[in-house]
Design a protein around this nucleic acid. Structure first.
Lengths: 203, 203
DNA sequence: GCCCGTTGGATAACGTGTTCTCGTGAGCCG
DNA sequence: CGGCTCACGAGAACACGTTATCCAACGGGC
């Protein structure tokens, strides 16, 4: 029940402790996946007590989300730095998603964590919204203005945005299928193109 | 690790025991959700030992899947008995999904279980394929021939089928959003129509 | 300086999914 | 009939997320 302290109000040593925890967790997650990232191990290797870990992250899911969020930051950074070059919106959108797919598949355990957090995380986080935003911004070609935290100009009720969201859903599901070993990347690419061509035609 | 015995090779009393377990589990799940469906309680109320429960269902997830599968049978039955009447494929598909949504929302706890099994269940089960099949069969208007277990005539590589699958992904994700309290049914209906109109136009 | 509330460390305890151990009775083969 | 196998019951044991307990250290207001 402990409310997560807003990051701004943390002392330096608290910020560092938090960072240390997340990095330790990420390291454990990369090899071994979510199940290798056990709260006791994280606490021990990060050099904090179990209770402290729980003060910073009230549940394991919160910790997973924190790890995944960092991963997502990296992805967004990469996209903004080297935007996709296809010349139709649907092509650009598929581009982003495929790049994300390949990136994630380099650490399948983290991909698994991402998917699980998207589906399972209680309310709060909106990782999916971030991804949909990204897809939409890339598709409509408005990226330049400074990266992730500025989402003021996206109209989340527009038809286009809804369709970008739909494509994101499809992507997430395909990700699940890959993780289950039921698809390879090429199949996913084909399916994403098929869907994107219909969903994002006329933008 | 124990391999699930094929149902055909079970003795009568084993079949009955299995049924008793699933029904008990379902009853517990309906009120209280997955977390109320605890392995010890299920075993106790079904009158079997914990070890026996685990012989029949090697993990809780397997039990959840069994329960959800029965639910899905019911849905399929309802659809076949009273097929949707809209006259375009996209309308019929949305019809099915909305009916499913409303049905599931009557037991949100089971809906939750369904979603989790779709995403999390290790390999094996293909609940999602069943749903995609259903959507596709409804959209193309070929339902009559005997319900679920006959899927011989569906070409799972056709573009149309892929698109039906995409729509199913969207639906599942919207289900998740409902369960998180971030959407109501009307919003979902709007979004499904928007997506379906694009995905299933021209069929 | 001193006191108090909060933070953090160490550790035990609890809940629930899962596994293990052991004994018993029922069918089966010789 | 005697022994073998094996599903089943009963319950302990284990693993890991989570919570609770207790105490020391720290930091800010008097």
């Amino acid at each position: 029940m402990a409310v997560q302290a807003p990051i701004g109000t943390m002392t330096r040593s608290q910020t560092q402790r938090r960072r240390r925890i997340v990095q330790t967790a990420a390291a454990l997650a990369v090899r071994g996946g979510v199940e290798a990232m056990q709260m006791r191990s994280v606490a021990e290797r990060a050099g904090v007590a179990l209770g402290t870990l729980y003060r910073y992250f009230p549940s394991k899911m919160d910790l997973v989300v924190a790890v995944v969020t960092e991963e997502l930051d990296l992805l967004e950074g990469g996209i903004v730095r080297r935007p996709p070059t296809a010349d139709d919106p649907s092509g650009r959108a598929v581009d982003v998603l495929l790049r994300a797919t390949r990136g994630l598949m380099r650490e399948p355990e983290l991909a698994d964590a991402l998917v699980r957090s998207l589906i399972m995380a209680e309310v709060k986080i909106e990782l999916d919204v971030r991804i949909s935003d990204l897809v939409w911004r890339v598709a409509t070609g408005n990226l330049g203005d400074g990266g992730s935290p500025d989402d003021t100009e996206v109209d989340r009720d527009s038809t286009g945005y809804v369709l970008a969201g739909a494509l994101t859903s499809v992507w997430i599901f395909e990700l699940v299928e890959i993780l289950k070993g039921r698809r390879d990347i090429d199949e996913v690419e084909g399916r994403l193109r098929t869907a994107a061509d219909r969903l994002l035609a006329s933008f």
